[in-house]
Lab assay of single mutants.
Amino acid sequence: LADYWKCTSCNEMNPPLPSHCNRCWALRE
Rank of each mutant, 00 (worst) to 15 (best):
A26C: 04
P15M: 05
L17N: 15
R23V: 05
C21S: 01
L27S: 13
C21E: 02
P15D: 03
C24P: 00
A26M: 08
N22G: 14
P18I: 09
L17A: 14
L17K: 13
A26S: 07
S19N: 09
C24K: 00
P18C: 12
H20N: 09
R28S: 06
E29G: 10
N22Y: 09
N22D: 09
C7L: 01
C21T: 02
N11F: 05
C7G: 03
H20R: 12
L27M: 07
S19L: 08
L1I: 14
P16H: 04
L27C: 03
A2R: 15
P15S: 07
S19M: 06
S9Y: 08
C7Y: 01
A2V: 09
W25E: 13
H20A: 05
R23T: 06
Y4L: 15
E29V: 09
P15L: 00
R28T: 04
N22V: 09
R23H: 05
C21R: 01
L17G: 13
R28D: 11
T8N: 01
L27P: 13
R23N: 06
R28C: 12
L17E: 15
L1N: 11
H20P: 15
C21Q: 03
P18Q: 14
R23W: 03
S19D: 14
C24M: 00
R23Q: 09
L27W: 07
R23F: 04
P18T: 12
A26I: 06
K6G: 06
P16E: 02
C10G: 00
A26L: 07
P18A: 14
W25G: 15
H20T: 06
W25I: 08
H20V: 06
L27H: 05
E29C: 08
S19K: 10
K6F: 06
N11E: 03
P18W: 07
R28L: 03
L17D: 10
A26F: 02
H20C: 01
A2F: 03
H20L: 09
R23M: 06
N11L: 10
P16N: 00
L27G: 12
C24R: 00
A26R: 11
C24E: 01
N22A: 13
W25C: 14
S19A: 08
P15K: 00
S19P: 11
S19I: 11
C24S: 00
L27T: 12
P18E: 14
C21I: 01
P18G: 14
R28M: 05
N22M: 11
N22R: 13
W25A: 15
C7S: 07
P18H: 07
E12C: 04
A26K: 06
P18V: 13
Y4R: 00
M13I: 05
A26Q: 09
P18S: 13
C24D: 02
P18L: 12
S19V: 08
L17Y: 05
P15C: 02
P16Q: 05
L27R: 11
H20W: 07
C21Y: 00
R23C: 04
S19G: 07
L27K: 13
P16A: 05
L27N: 09
R23E: 12
R23S: 07
S19H: 12
A26N: 06
E29W: 03
C21K: 02
P18M: 14
L17H: 08
P16W: 02
A26E: 13
S19T: 10
L1W: 11
N11Y: 11
R23L: 04
L17M: 09
A2N: 13
Y4W: 00
P15V: 06
C21A: 02
W25D: 15
P16M: 01
W5A: 04
C24Q: 00
R28E: 06
P15Q: 04
L17R: 09
S19F: 15
P18Y: 09
N22W: 13
C7M: 02
R28G: 08
S19W: 08
P16V: 02
A26W: 04
H20K: 12
A26G: 10
R28V: 04
N22L: 11
L17F: 02
N11G: 05
P16L: 03
L17V: 09
C24I: 03
H20S: 11
L1S: 14
P15H: 12
R28W: 02
H20D: 03
R28A: 08
W25H: 15
E29L: 08
P16G: 05
Y4V: 06
W25Q: 15
P15W: 03
S9V: 15
R28K: 10
L27A: 12
A2W: 08
S19Y: 10
C24A: 00
W25T: 13
R28P: 10
H20Q: 13
C21W: 01
W5S: 07
A26V: 06
N14L: 03
P18K: 13
H20F: 08
R28Q: 12
N22S: 09
N14K: 07
W25F: 11
C21V: 01
C10P: 02
R23I: 02
W25R: 15
H20G: 08
N22K: 13
A2L: 05
C21F: 01
C24N: 03
R23A: 11
R23G: 10
C21L: 00
C24V: 00
W5C: 08
L17S: 12
P15R: 05
E29R: 13
P16T: 03
A26P: 05
L27D: 11
W25Y: 15
R23P: 02
S19Q: 13
C10Y: 10
N22C: 08
A2K: 14
C21P: 01
S9G: 06
L17C: 10
C24L: 00
L17P: 04
W25M: 15
P15G: 10
Y4H: 10
N22E: 13
A26D: 11
P18R: 14
E29S: 07
R28Y: 05
C24T: 01
L17T: 08
P16R: 04
P16K: 02
P15E: 04
R23D: 14
D3L: 04
R23K: 11
N22P: 09
E29A: 07
C21D: 01
T8Q: 07
C21G: 02
N22T: 12
L17Q: 10
L17W: 07
R23Y: 04
N22H: 07
C24G: 01
W25P: 08
L27V: 10
P15T: 04
C24H: 01
L27F: 05
C24W: 00
L27E: 12
Y4F: 10
S19R: 10
P15N: 11
R28H: 10
H20E: 03
N14V: 14
E29P: 15
A26T: 12
P16F: 01
W25L: 14
W25K: 15
E29Q: 14
N22Q: 14
S19E: 14
E12F: 05
P16I: 01
H20Y: 07
P15A: 06
K6Q: 02
N11W: 04
R28I: 03
W25V: 12
L17I: 11
T8L: 09
W25N: 15
W25S: 15
P16C: 00
P16S: 04
L27Q: 12
P18D: 11
S9W: 06
S19C: 04
H20M: 03
